[in-house]
Design a binder for these strands. Structure first.
Lengths: 410, 410
DNA sequence: CCGCTTTGTTTGGGAGCGGGACAAAGAGAG
DNA sequence: CTCTCTTTGTCCCGCTCCCAAACAAAGCGG
């Protein structure tokens, strides 16, 4: 029997991948830091940097940069190659779809303006968004190493089907990854070595927000990052463990919407009562503040505007915000008791609630998470724009980070 | 700067560790299987097996074992060396303490009869249990590679303090790992190279049950294993991800007792109502069945006996069991929604509830965990005796599995 | 000008593992 | 019994990756 793998025990190509990830996430500004972070000798770090440069993935400054107030020989700066290869990132959400080219470091190189409607036929929508991405590739002439898609739905693994596309006119169970991959093939999106791209990646949008924030945003450096966010309706969560998305064994982990945060609360479609999902989303906020929630589209925006302009002046808004903060704190405390993350990042309405009154949120969490340890636990707001697009790109970059040589060879 | 590590990027010594783990967990009965599992060539697997044998960790049958009904050259059987080194495992719990020597494969080589009382002074107790372990080592003449301790308390990392010793006359915050290590030094427990052992490990008992079940019991082969169990009072949980215990960033993950499983339930010391902790433990069962719960000691045993002898004949017992099963199902469904494990192992009263009526438990879980996916999710009972003792040993074996050569050198 | 400190490069060598040829040990066919 | 087929295990060569140590470079302070 000949072993199928020719790599060294799944490790890819030694230190190349880890080194690229360090530069990619901005944690290795110089070869000296790279040496320390990798735990290798200067010789190895130098060789690795040289190979990454030869591959066109990173650049090394020709002139050394003098570090302020330090002695010794100044370092050459390492950075991702701004003219290097990109990946195709696509996003479908309630308000439309968008395609972009994203380089290493999470830099958005080019993006479409973004459509405003999503049609009922998933194949049609994905054909359009992939077509838009392919146009961007032709216009910019960039080399493309992969493609990732963000959808507002739990994505079941290993099938890659969208189980509950939220606020999209799509049926449940659409095999989004398969369709996405087929669209890439039909649009003849060129892959690393000129031929057509063979595989697309797809995942839930909040998972991708968490991934993007971990690599390039408020979650950088966290070991266990918990991300909780709202869209127009409902609440989602995601967890990044040791730099990898924890999607669970069937891709459905962190379905956090159905934690009980109010035993006397309103009924939820899950069969329970007072779930985080229905008690802390924009609809709950607008109703609690006595406002007409209006149509679902734009509900998040209206809730954010109301909170940001009227808190804490308007008593109804203030009380509504405090109610939601208390319930969110309860839900987060429950998650902290189970997951024990070392950082939490909030998005959507939740991040606005945090900005409105962080003390109150911390107080509730400290009360209900055991031993009051959450006091040491940073709770932050999302720091990135287009984070789920950047996250979709991270999905596509992953094989490159795992084994740069193999990924570039196609 | 010279790098502190001389290993190759933290991987220890190549394939040695992974190979030992495969034999240790019984997943590599022959060199051929080892070859396939490691994904290396036969040459490498053979060399690795030879080195592990030379280290005295495994044995290779001199005579090949003919596999029934297969052709080709028969394999030599690989197994852990029954006369090889051991680790010292110690356990402190409500009903006493115990020390044991555990070999590779989770085999208990020697054990003390077990004391029946635990005194109020942790130092005294740990001195006694370590002393008993040291006696076992002297009597058997075994070489000892490490030591692990199981305590019925959450253990905060990285300090190693027992935050809430349950049903022990100990104060909160006892630095158990430090005390354990000091006791090992004072008892002059000899380490791998003759000198005194330098470090002990300590962890929560349910975490260790999960680890032991994953390596040697009902959880073998699971990727994401969730374990939920009761003691006399209260409920604990643990999660093994990719073969490693997930303890969270401060060691307090899987504090699952305070999930809400009955909005109208009894108040819990956590401030909530109807928590898993107070609604599915032996006390709740005995009370629901209309029995006098009696003293805390032995409560688990009485609840188990009642359930096993009177279910389903006695209506009060049947109704109580169904009530607890429904609540347990609700709690497990909540955990499944968050963690998405691929196997669940139940212990204590919970495993007896599963044995009593598995269909009912599955039905409740399927109803409340999203998309009814838990139907595919195996829910099993613990398979091991002395599992937390074996788990404590696993803790001590871990450095050996990570790098056998370094661990044996001391 | 000369040390001192830190960064980067060169060279040599060693550990780990792949690859292929070869040897061993059974099963089954004739 | 012998021959072939299948599978397991070993030997040996060479490649790749990386460490170690010496050397070179580039600032700073005296």
């Amino acid at each position: 029997m000949t072993p199928t793998r020719t790599t060294r025990l799944e490790r890819g190509r030694g230190a190349l991948g880890p080194a690229l990830e360090l530069v990619h996430t901005g944690r290795a500004p110089t070869r000296a830091v790279l040496t320390a972070e990798l735990g290798v000798t200067r010789a190895t770090a130098g060789a690795v940097a040289a190979e990454l440069e030869a591959l066109g993935l990173i650049t090394v400054d020709s002139r050394p940069t003098a570090a302020a107030g330090s002695q010794g020989r100044p370092s050459h700066r390492l950075s991702v190659n701004p003219d290097g290869p990109v990946v195709l990132a696509a996003q479908v959400h309630a308000d439309g779809f968008r395609a972009a080219l994203v380089g290493l470091g999470g830099r958005i190189v080019a993006t479409t303006p973004g459509s405003l409607t999503v049609e009922a036929d998933p194949v049609h929508v994905l054909t359009e968004v992939v077509g838009a991405g392919a146009r961007l590739l032709r216009e910019t002439g960039r080399r493309c190493l992969g493609a990732g898609l963000s959808v507002p739905s739990a994505v079941a693994e290993p099938e890659g089907t969208a189980l509950n596309p939220l606020h999209l006119p799509w049926p449940a169970g659409v095999p989004v990854r398969e369709i996405f991959t087929r669209c890439l093939a039909e649009a003849r999106v060129p892959g690393p070595s000129g031929e057509t791209l063979t595989a697309g990646h797809a995942a839930n949008d909040i998972n991708l927000v968490a991934l993007a924030e971990h690599r390039h945003g408020a979650g950088r450096g966290a070991r266990d990052l918990l991300c909780v966010a709202t869209g127009h309706r409902g609440v989602g969560g995601a967890l990044v463990l040791d730099g990898r998305l924890h999607t669970g064994s069937s891709g459905l982990a962190l379905e956090v919407g159905h934690l009980t945060v109010d035993p006397d609360g309103r009924p939820c479609h899950c069969g329970g009562r007072g779930c985080l999902d229905v008690e802390t989303d924009p609809l709950a906020f607008l109703e609690a503040a006595g406002r007409d929630p209006g149509p679902e589209a734009g509900m998040l925006r209206r809730a954010l505007d109301l909170l940001r302009t009227e808190y804490p002046a308007d008593p109804a808004v203030r009380d509504a915000a405090h109610l939601l903060i208390d319930r969110l704190g309860l839900g987060l405390a429950g998650l902290v008791n189970i997951l024990d993350p070392d950082r939490i990042v909030l998005g959507g309405l939740h991040s606005a609630l945090l900005e409105a009154n962080a003390e109150r949120l911390h107080a509730v969490m400290g009360e209900r998470s055991l031993w009051g340890r959450s006091g040491d636990l940073p709770v932050l707001t999302c720091a990135l724009e287009h984070s789920s697009l950047v996250g979709a790109a991270e999905l596509a970059w992953q094989p490159v980070l795992d084994d740069p040589v193999a990924a570039l060879a196609g």
